[in-house]
Nucleic acid binder design. Structure first.
Length: 507
DNA sequence: TCTCCTCCCACGTTTGAACGGG
DNA sequence: ACCCGTTCAAACGTGGGAGGAG
């Protein structure tokens, strides 16, 4: 993990956006040497949407409720991705990583360190329901992870992300690329963290300012807004608070009012400044250059050449046009209300022109500070993406059905995703190459049956990274990554074993 | 006594089935 | 039979409060 060592660099002077580049990522030599994965050679840029809101929370100290049954995040993680290959499939997933090694406690009006953190729980990944999908789909609309749920229940089996209460975390986005059977690419793997989206997991809100901010911004909490004061318990509490701490509350409300006064501008600011805050490209070359150690890549590899053979019939691609994003969004723009004509421009920074001077995180970039070459490139990129007009909200009235179905579906356990992928791969493979049928145990049914043990077998080894003292477990194959696609894989995910069990049980 | 957690509540939003009209 | 729009109840998501555990 690399978060704290990242330097925020301006990315696009035209859109006043900026991104994070790790020092490792800056090493173009290293990067060039790892060119086996196409994803790693792309100027991928990820931007966190809703930056204004995140900043508001971050200023106060973001808290996220965790419950036994799972609680959604608010604000939820919503990102735009640029720079992917439009015709290559990717899996996007998100998890939470410790922000530091501390445990916190709320002391009257501020958070303070309360000893060392507890051992980090094995990562649970929330896979975007649309995965896998072509790059053009990921780049077409902001990618919402609003269905991601946080819990403190380590025994949950519903694909929730398990966290420790009173610990600080930050979201981490994973982009996993399917291998290219023609080019021999083994795929790639990128990770992006969002330090500005860091939060402290709590079982009940500690900071009242956070509570108010959430109530004022979360539509689900409308019942707790001002009109909610008519409710009895709110009336009582309100009366009590007014008599006890009127002055202090006024101060707080003034502060919050000043924050909320900007709400109306939020969407426009989001659109104009791109909220770029993701780490750009791969910072962790160790993980990236070892695709075999990547569980997701491993599964794709196990799919062999057929992995992309089924690319045109992805889980949710059927209704997505293969037109360029430019054309697609131009078309969408016409059907949108003028008020929604908000521009979301992302820039993919040419690696050769990455500035080397660290800049303050919140500093906006002035065009004059860029070299002409960089500026020129930005201009070209920005012009290319200038037509990316996206609605401030993913309205059902404005998006294709495929987007709705994917967003609406429940989070899928990792094993489900891979089993689905592999099942499709095998089915497709059998359809195209009937001779493979014999190799796959003679029947379609048996071929599919081979898939499930692949994720149930827990005999895999794990490589660990301990960059921050916490352990992230990465399953590794028990064999040669170059094995044929028909050979069952020993892919195991310790943190997902129960999911695999569910899949095998037909859930 | 304090901190943290769990459960339940009331309220608003979202979803999808049911229904009727064209 | 099919499509489309409307209605409405259930499910879901939300923070607050009471009360319990340590």
């Amino acid at each position: 993990m690399y978060v704290h060592k990242d330097y925020p660099y301006p990315v696009n002077p035209l859109t006043k956006s900026y991104g994070y580049y790790s020092q490792g990522e800056m090493n173009s030599v290293c990067r060039a040497s790892c060119g086996e994965a196409e994803l790693m050679s792309l100027p991928v840029h990820v931007a966190l949407q809703g930056r204004e809101l995140w900043d508001k929370f971050n200023t106060i100290g973001t808290e996220m409720l965790i419950t036994k049954t799972g609680r959604r995040m608010f604000p939820s993680c919503r990102v735009t991705v640029m720079g992917l290959n439009p015709k290559v499939k990717y899996v996007l997933m998100m998890d939470m990583v410790p922000f530091d090694n501390n445990k916190y406690k709320w002391n009257r009006d501020h958070w303070e360190v309360n000893g060392k953190s507890e051992p980090h729980l094995p990562n649970r990944f929330f896979i975007h329901p649309d995965s896998p999908a072509l790059g053009e789909r990921w780049m077409q609309y902001p990618i919402s992870f609003h269905k991601l749920k946080l819990t403190n229940n380590t025994l949950n089996s519903k694909g929730l992300v398990v966290l420790h209460s009173m610990h600080k975390y930050q979201p981490r986005l994973h982009i996993v690329q399917a291998p290219d059977p023609c080019g021999g690419h083994s795929g790639g793997y990128l990770r992006f963290t969002f330090p500005e989206a860091a939060f402290i997991a709590v079982t009940s809100y500690q900071n009242q300012e956070i509570t108010k901010l959430k109530i004022d911004n979360n539509p689900f909490a409308k019942g707790f807004r001002d009109n909610g004061l008519s409710r009895k318990r709110f009336r009582d509490k309100d009366m009590c608070q007014r008599s006890v701490s009127g002055q202090q509350q006024n101060r707080t409300q003034n502060h919050q009012a000043s924050l909320l006064d900007t709400d109306d501008e939020e969407d426009e600011q989001v659109s104009s400044s791109v909220e770029s805050s993701g780490a750009l490209c791969l910072p962790d070359m160790k993980a990236a250059s070892l695709p075999v150690s990547n569980p997701f890549l491993s599964v794709f590899i196990s799919c062999g050449g057929a992995g992309l053979a089924c690319g045109q019939e992805g889980l949710s691609q059927s209704t997505i046009s293969h037109q360029s994003p430019h054309i697609l969004n131009s078309k969408n723009r016409d059907s949108r209300r003028p008020d929604d004509n908000l521009q979301y421009m992302c820039a993919s920074l040419p690696q050769a022109h990455i500035p080397r001077t660290p800049m303050p995180q919140q500093q906006t970039c002035h065009p004059d500070t860029q070299t002409p070459a960089v500026h020129q490139n930005y201009s070209a990129q920005a012009k290319l993406h200038q037509s990316l007009r996206l609605p401030p909200k993913l309205s059902r009235m404005q998006l294709p059905e495929s987007v709705f179905t994917s967003l609406d579906s429940n989070p899928k356990p990792l094993s489900d995703i891979f089993n689905t992928i592999q099942a499709r791969v095998v089915a497709k493979d059998l359809q195209i190459n009937p001779q493979h049928e014999q190799m796959a145990s003679g029947s379609h049914r048996e071929a599919k049956a081979q898939i499930f043990p692949a994720v149930q077998d827990c005999g895999a080894a794990f490589c660990t990274e301990q960059d921050t003292g916490h352990t992230t477990e990465w399953p590794v194959f028990n064999g040669n990554p170059g094995q044929s696609s028909t050979e069952p894989r020993s892919v195991a995910f310790s943190q997902l074993g129960e999911y695999a069990g569910e899949s095998a049980a037909g859930k």
